[in-house]
């Protein structure tokens, strides 16, 4: 077992663009669930609709990069309105069901044969991200980093952009949550009827929250698609939402920095598990059949599922949360 490789990969995973993407999306989910109590089980739908918004507006309509980004984020606003209008007056479970359904609809629609000319079917859209790499200060052929932890120029660029955005949106949410606006959101999380009895338009605040968190999800999707230089429908499949949920809960729901901690921790743990399993298989400690083919991949989903259950049951406050505060939540 090569522990150096295992740990190097874990560190790379922790700082990877995927971790940054998850952090941004988890900030959005934190606005939804952590501060407002909204159950969004379709965050990946927001990611995908924005990524496609960017991809399609560049490849189909030749939009400049900045405009494409705005269109992408507006697509997330649109989705939030579409999902919020019918459901935010109803019990929270309705939003949960409708969001998970919507994320699947979006995936199926974008990958559909009927729309191939527009959204590229199951192959998705390629080659729209060039305009973004124009500003890349790094040399794509040079590896940057410390010691053996190195990434190539384009990666370094997207990692820096991704994490900068993650920190910026975290600060944005921090500004909002210390304000009376954030107080209304939290009051809705605790008891919507109490907020309404005090004259707060809970519906409208929930809508604002859904839009804000959705736009952050959209931003995450854009970063991911630009980083991959492609947007493919099946990258944005339902389990991604639950990965992000796990990252958020790992960090601690309803806390400012937890999405970032959670995303880093999530990817490091996943990488450790994967690499240890790989190495163990290679070293013959684990029989090859255990991880052969589709099995190796499914193990990681199982780990996430199990982790999500155990976290929620035994440490719902996450690694950094306050157990006492969590215990007060009487629902």
């Amino acid at each position: 077992m090569d522990w150096e490789v295992i740990f190097r990969n874990a560190i790379l995973a922790g700082i990877s663009r995927e971790a940054a993407v998850y952090a941004i999306a988890a900030v959005g989910l934190n606005v939804h669930f952590g501060y407002t109590g909204l159950l969004n089980f379709g965050q990946v739908g927001f990611m995908s609709i924005s990524a496609y918004g960017v991809g399609i507006s560049i490849t189909q309509y030749g939009a400049p990069v900045w405009l494409a980004f705005i269109i992408g984020l507006l697509a997330a606003v649109f989705l939030a309105l579409l999902l919020g209008v019918p459901t935010l007056r109803l019990r929270a479970d309705y939003l949960a069901i409708v969001t998970i359904a919507a994320s699947e609809i979006i995936r199926l629609t974008f990958r559909s044969v009927a729309l191939t000319d527009w959204s590229g079917g199951s192959n998705g859209i390629n080659g729209f991200a060039d305009g973004f790499y124009v500003w890349n200060p790094f040399d794509p052929s040079v590896a940057y980093g410390f010691g053996s932890v190195k990434v190539f120029g384009n990666q370094a660029y997207i990692i820096i952009v991704g994490w900068t955005l993650a920190v910026l949106v975290t600060l944005l949410v921090w500004l909002l949550m210390r304000s009376p606006w954030g107080r209304v959101l939290k009051s809705i999380r605790e008891d919507e009827d109490a907020a309404r009895a005090l004259g707060k338009n809970a519906y409208w605040y929930k809508m604002q929250s859904l839009i804000l968190g959705g736009v952050l999800g959209g931003l995450a999707g854009i970063v991911l698609s630009v980083g991959q230089s492609t947007v493919q429908p099946d990258v944005y499949s339902p389990p991604v939402t639950f990965f992000i949920w796990t990252a958020l809960i790992l960090g601690g729901v309803g806390r400012i920095w937890s999405p970032i901690f959670g995303a880093v921790a999530f990817w490091m743990i996943l990488s450790l598990a994967n690499n240890v399993l790989d190495q163990a298989t290679q070293a013959g400690i684990v029989p090859a059949a255990v991880t052969a083919g589709v099995r190796g991949g499914s193990i990681r989903f199982m780990i996430v599922g199990l982790g999500l259950m155990l976290l929620m049951a035994f440490r719902p406050q996450g690694v950094f949360g306050d157990r006492n505060e969590m215990m007060l939540a009487d629902r």
């Binding site: 109590g37 809960i249 083919g293 589709v294 989903f301």
Partner: peptide
């Protein structure tokens, strides 16, 4: 444990079982 926590647990359970099935039954 609150209903929402239980709901998230059903999601984790679903993920675990689904990929457990993929593991034993293949794709």
């Amino acid at each position: 444990v609150g209903l929402i926590a239980q709901l998230v647990i059903t999601i984790g359970l679903s993920l675990f079982l689904r990929y457990g099935l993929l593991y034993v039954f293949r794709g």
